[in-house]
């Protein structure tokens, strides 16, 4: 099974990206699993719309613990099973909430286990910060060389200033694989799917 993890700052749209990718590959219903802080695992079968209502929010730290879905990728042969994992948003400093810190540590464990990283950044934030990446993003970028398959997801392409921010990002990192997407409006995902399928094909 190939494991792919979605990581980034809180509130950059990781869960929305994860759901869009999962529903794009997995079909009409998503089987979402998660692990409670006490170690118990939960599972729920949801439509993408229900999953979006339940799992996404406008605020930060909606995802407090990692959650994942197993998808059998059936496009072409051989079939590949992909575990697509959504992680808790990472912060640069020490977060005062102990439960959240545990969720972040669990996320970090999954991240360091995953050969595929989707590192999500918020183009709206990038536009406001004059193209300067947040410390957390810089840290994740620094360690990308340890990851066999790394992709930078420039999310929220629908926001004002996002196009310019995306151009600056691509210009500043010509060596990176960058996908410009809007998870909200499901744009830009074709190239993400193509890339992931190619990774699946090679690793099968």
């Amino acid at each position: 099974m190939l494991t792919a993890a979605v990581a980034g700052l809180p509130g950059v749209g990781k869960t929305m990206f994860w759901l869009r990718t999962g529903s794009g590959l997995g079909g009409r219903f998503l089987s979402v699993r998660w692990r409670e802080p006490d170690g118990r695992e939960g599972k729920r079968r949801m439509s993408p719309a229900e999953a979006r209502c339940r799992l996404c929010s406008l605020g930060r730290h909606k995802t407090r613990n990692p959650q994942w879905m197993d998808i059998a990728v059936r496009r072409g042969l051989p079939w590949t099973k992909v575990r697509l994992t959504d992680t808790a948003g990472l912060v640069a400093g020490v977060h005062p909430d102990a439960d959240l810190r545990r969720g972040m540590a669990e996320s970090l464990r999954l991240l360091t286990d995953s050969p595929v990283w989707f590192h999500v950044v918020d183009l709206g934030r990038l536009a406001r910060e004059n193209g300067r990446l947040h410390e957390v993003d810089r840290e994740l970028l620094r360690y990308r060389r340890h990851v066999p398959h790394y992709a930078l997801i420039a999310n929220k392409a629908d926001l004002p200033g996002a196009a310019e921010a995306a151009e600056r990002l691509i210009g500043a990192h010509p060596d990176l694989r960058i996908f410009v997407v809007s998870s909200l409006y499901r744009t830009g995902f074709d190239s993400v799917f193509r890339w992931l399928l190619e990774v699946c094909r090679r690793t099968a």
Binding site: G93, L108, T112, V136, R145, V147, P148, H149, E198, R202
Partner: peptide, 26 residues
């Protein structure tokens, strides 16, 4: 975070010397 990542990768854990399935991309 920075310190945790540094210790995890700096001490040799988690790094992969060759990509899964041999797809060399980065």
């Amino acid at each position: 975070l920075a310190e945790a990542l540094k210790q995890i990768y700096g001490e040799g854990f988690g790094s992969r010397t060759s990509p899964v399935g041999g797809v060399s991309e980065e």
